[in-house]
Amino acid sequence: MASAPVTLWDGKEHDPHYIERSYHEGILPEGGVKEQFRIQTIRLKTTEEIVGFISMYHGYPQSDSLYLAMMCISGDFQNQGYGQEVMKHFLLEIGLLGYFEIRVNVSLRNWAGLRFWTKSGFNLISGIFGDTEFAEGKFADIELINRW
């Protein structure tokens, strides 16, 4: 599944086994346990075709928080409203499960991602992490929160 040029945002080499490793090992915070990590496919309603995935860690940094490790919509399906539809329903479901906030980490170089997440209500900033100066080969991320 191809999405976007992630290497341009974080400087890391492409990992063709990322999804497989995520499924088997999880994307865990420090001290995290695999049992609290979930990965879910995103499928078209009409054909059940897989067009993306979303992965999350339940209970970080607090027990009533959810941390989005990754959300990916395949390039052929981007900019058609699928991501916003997924996020709208996801936020409703997560609220029903008793979570009061969702956090996501976004590269400061990922302009489309920053627009997507702020449009989805992630309008609180908990921190900026990474390099402290802007330059070639320097990278930083921002952690955004959607809290209700």
Rank of each mutant, 00 (worst) to 15 (best):
E48W: 01
E49V: 10
M1C: 03
S74P: 00
T41A: 10
L108C: 14
K34F: 11
S3M: 07
Q40R: 14
L92E: 11
G113Q: 09
H17E: 14
I128P: 06
E136F: 12
Q40A: 02
L92N: 03
L91H: 09
W111Q: 08
L96S: 12
Q78I: 05
Q84S: 13
K88M: 03
G121F: 11
G31D: 09
L97A: 09
G59D: 08
W9F: 15
G137L: 02
A2L: 15
E30H: 04
I145G: 03
E25D: 13
W117D: 12
D76H: 12
I27M: 11
L91R: 06
F122S: 07
G127R: 13
P16Y: 01
G127H: 12
H58T: 02
L144N: 08
S3V: 14
Y60K: 03
I50A: 03
G121Q: 04
S65L: 00
R147H: 10
P61C: 06
R43M: 05
H24K: 10
H24Y: 15
T46M: 04
W117V: 04
K34Y: 11
W9C: 07
V86C: 03
R43Y: 01
E133P: 02
G121H: 07
A140W: 02
Y57L: 05
K45E: 13
S120C: 15
D15N: 15
S22E: 14
F122I: 11
I73G: 01
S107C: 04
G52M: 05
E48A: 12
S74R: 13
D15P: 10
N123Q: 12
F53N: 05
F116K: 08
L66Y: 01
L66C: 02
G121V: 11
I42H: 04
H24L: 15
N123L: 13
I94H: 05
Y99D: 09
I102Y: 00
T41N: 04
I73M: 07
S74V: 03
E48V: 00
G127Q: 12
L108N: 09
G95A: 07
E48Y: 03
L96H: 12
Y60D: 07
G81V: 03
A112Y: 08
Q36P: 01
N146A: 10
F129P: 01
F53Q: 05
Q78M: 12
F116H: 09
E35Y: 05
I128R: 10
C72Q: 11
I54K: 07
I39H: 05
E133K: 14
F53V: 01
T7G: 06
G137D: 12
